Computed example of a mutant assay.
Amino acid sequence: MPPFAVTPLYAALCAILLIALSLRVARLRGSLKVALGDGGERALQKAIRVQGNFIEYVPMALLLLFLLELSRQAPLWALHALGAGLLLGRILHAIGLSSSAGLSFGRFVGTILTFSMIMITAIWLLILAVNAM
Rank of each mutant, 00 (worst) to 15 (best):
M1K: 13
P2I: 09
P2A: 03
P2W: 11
P3C: 06
F4D: 09
A5C: 02
T7V: 05
L9E: 01
A12F: 14
C14S: 15
C14N: 05
A15W: 12
A15V: 06
A15Q: 08
I16C: 07
I16Q: 07
L17K: 08
L17P: 00
L18H: 06
L23A: 15
L23P: 04
R24I: 06
V25E: 00
A26D: 14
R27K: 07
G30L: 15
S31A: 04
L32T: 00
V34N: 12
V34A: 10
A35N: 14
A35L: 14
L36M: 05
L36V: 12
G37V: 14
G37Q: 13
D38M: 10
G39H: 13
G39Y: 03
G40D: 11
E41M: 00
R42C: 03
R42N: 08
L44N: 06
Q45I: 15
K46D: 04
K46N: 13
K46W: 09
R49Q: 11
V50R: 11
V50D: 01
G52Q: 14
F54Y: 03
I55R: 01
P59Q: 10
M60T: 14
M60D: 02
M60H: 00
A61L: 11
L62I: 12
L62W: 02
L62G: 13
L63G: 13
L64T: 11
L67T: 04
L67R: 09
L67Y: 09
L67I: 11
L68T: 10
L68F: 09
E69W: 00
E69M: 00
L70P: 02
S71W: 06
R72P: 07
R72E: 15
R72W: 02
Q73Y: 04
Q73G: 10
Q73I: 03
P75T: 07
L76A: 01
L76Q: 14
L76V: 10
L79Q: 05
A81N: 05
A81G: 07
A81Y: 00
L87F: 15
L87E: 14
R90F: 06
H93C: 05
H93T: 06
H93L: 10
H93V: 11
A94K: 10
G96Q: 00
S98H: 11
S99K: 15
S100W: 03
A101K: 05
R107D: 11
R107M: 06
R107H: 11
F108E: 03
F108S: 14
F108P: 09
L113A: 00
T114S: 10
S116I: 07
S116F: 11
S116R: 03
S116W: 03
I118K: 13
I118M: 15
I118N: 12
I118L: 09
M119K: 12
M119Y: 08
T121F: 13
A122Q: 09
W124T: 04
L125P: 03
L126K: 08
L128P: 08
A129D: 03
A129C: 14
A129L: 15
A129M: 14
V130G: 04
V130Q: 03
A132W: 15
M133R: 06
M133G: 14
